[in-house]
């Protein structure tokens, strides 16, 4: 960050990703100890897919977000439910999935919070970005942002304002 100025143009783009299905899996208290295999258990941990992006995000205590679960993930969820580990809640429409990509994505987000500190040692975190509740995940230098849908319009306006201030692209 040495030499950069927060007023310099932000080289990054914001894009809405179409996600047909999102599931939240919520464990019953300590029962998530029974979750099998590589299910991410540590706070802020995530299981990543082949493209490097998280497919299971442990974003809150005993709560995981599974965006666009494929057949394998669905099987895992159903197995976890059958094992009595917790409940799966269909939350399509609750979260809007955004992709923030580019060299200055972190700098843009730093206008709202110290993203480097928040994600230090974590794959994901539940945060407030520009006062909007969100789940933030990174695959450096890019970010996936799951914004609660009722806040998505104001969030997008906030990001667009910063991008326009620097003349960068809006996806």
């Amino acid at each position: 960050m040495n030499g950069t100025d927060q007023r310099d143009a932000m080289r990054c783009t914001l894009e809405v990703l179409p996600v047909a299905r999102i599931v939240e899996f919520v464990a019953f208290g300590a029962a998530h100890g029974t979750l099998a295999g590589d299910w991410p258990r540590a706070a802020g941990a995530a299981l990543r897919g082949a493209d490097g992006w998280p497919v299971i995000l442990h974003f809150a205590p005993a709560r995981w977000l599974l965006p666009q679960p494929d057949v394998t993930m669905i099987d895992r969820i159903e197995a976890a439910v059958a094992a009595g580990a917790g409940a799966a809640i269909e939350v399509e429409g609750k979260w809007v999935t955004l992709s923030l990509c580019g060299a200055d994505a972190a700098r843009l987000l730093s206008s709202s919070l110290d993203v480097a500190a928040v994600l230090a040692g974590r794959d994901c975190a539940a945060v407030e970005l520009f006062d909007c509740p969100a789940v933030l995940a990174s695959a450096a230098p890019d970010y996936r942002i799951y914004i609660k849908s009722s806040f998505a319009a104001d969030f997008t306006v906030a990001v667009e304002r910063l991008l326009r201030a620097g003349g960068a692209a809006i996806g």
């Binding site: 939240e24 208290g29 029962a31 009595g84 917790g86 809640i89 939350v91 429409g93 609750k94 849908s149």
Partner: peptide, 16 residues
């Protein structure tokens, strides 16, 4: 009610 097997999820925005 610690120890109860019950989950709570806000689905306000999941349903219009």
């Amino acid at each position: 009610w610690n120890g109860r097997a019950v989950t709570l999820t806000d689905v306000t925005e999941a349903w219009a």
